[in-house]
């Protein structure tokens, strides 16, 4: 059977390659070019130095990392047990229950956040007086489904007999959890973390709505610069965030391994 040349692998890859080039590579190059040029088009590192010479910019950077980390941590803390319960076949939670947890994702997130804002106001936790707490609640609420889903998928796939083996070898519940379940679900944890950490740092709608615009994350400063037509500074901040994100993506490289993860 001769391969038809129209459907050869190379040809099939063309649409995505074009997409990748137009909407990923070109914009990326543009960002880098803009970040290191001034409005006259000449090369400069002034954007870079002026960004890091302002203490408030570094504050924004640190706060973003902090909020991103806290959000990831809290989401994992809440999401992990939920995923464990959902994955337990004996408890009889079907796919429908999982959907119930993921359903908030289906509602437009601006609407969802606006509703959360009103809800928090009514219980006295308004963003005006507690901007950080309100923002954290908004973040956790929005990103929790992104944690539950990958964890649930990893847990349903893993081999239960390994846990039984751990008990058989005399490990107690804590030991079994720390030395068997946790390493085996590590790929899920890592992919969940990257799905939460990166978007949290770059989000600006949630912090604007929930924190009554009193908190500014990196996403906010990028938006402010671009809104005011200062594309060069905006690109530089975007680039800084990009670098930060590639650092976190370093953690993700074990995602390729299968569910046995770091067990042996």
């Amino acid at each position: 059977m001769r391969k038809s040349s129209i459907f050869s692998r190379k040809v099939l890859a063309v649409p995505y390659a074009v997409f990748l080039l137009l909407f990923v590579v070109v914009p990326l190059v543009l960002i880098i070019v803009y970040a290191f040029t001034d409005s006259d088009g000449g090369f400069t590192i002034n954007n870079f130095t002026s960004f890091f010479s302002e203490a408030h910019n570094i504050n924004t950077l640190l706060i973003s990392v902090l909020i991103g980390f806290l959000n990831t941590f809290i989401c994992l803390l809440i999401g992990y047990p939920v995923a464990m319960l959902l994955a337990k076949k004996e408890l009889g939670f079907g796919k429908a229950t999982v959907l119930l947890f993921v359903m908030p994702m289906w509602i437009n997130f601006v609407l969802r956040t606006a509703a959360t804002r009103d809800l928090l106001f009514n219980i006295g936790l308004n963003g005006g007086e507690h901007p950080y707490i309100a923002t954290m609640i908004g973040m956790v609420y929005n990103y929790l489904p992104f944690v539950i889903l990958p964890l649930y998928t990893t847990m349903t796939k893993l081999d239960k007999s390994l846990l039984e083996a751990s008990y058989d070898l005399g490990a107690n519940k804590v030991q079994t959890f720390v030395r068997t379940l946790l390493p085996m679900t590590m790929p899920g944890i890592i992919s969940a973390s990257t799905m939460v950490f990166m978007p949290t740092m770059s989000s600006f709608v949630i912090s604007d709505v929930m924190g009554e615009r009193k908190i500014s994350l990196i996403g906010n400063s990028i938006q402010l610069y671009f809104d005011q037509g200062l594309w060069h500074m905006g690109s530089l901040v975007a680039l800084i965030m990009l670098v930060l994100m590639s650092v976190t993506a370093f953690f993700d490289d074990s995602g390729e391994e299968n569910a046995r993860g770091g067990l042996w």
Binding site: H56, N57, N59, T60, I63, K214, I215, S216, S221, L224
Partner: peptide
Amino acid sequence: EKVLEMWSSVKSNEM
């Protein structure tokens, strides 16, 4: 640009 720098400093976070 000066005014904006001031503004983004005001908007940034109290540590």
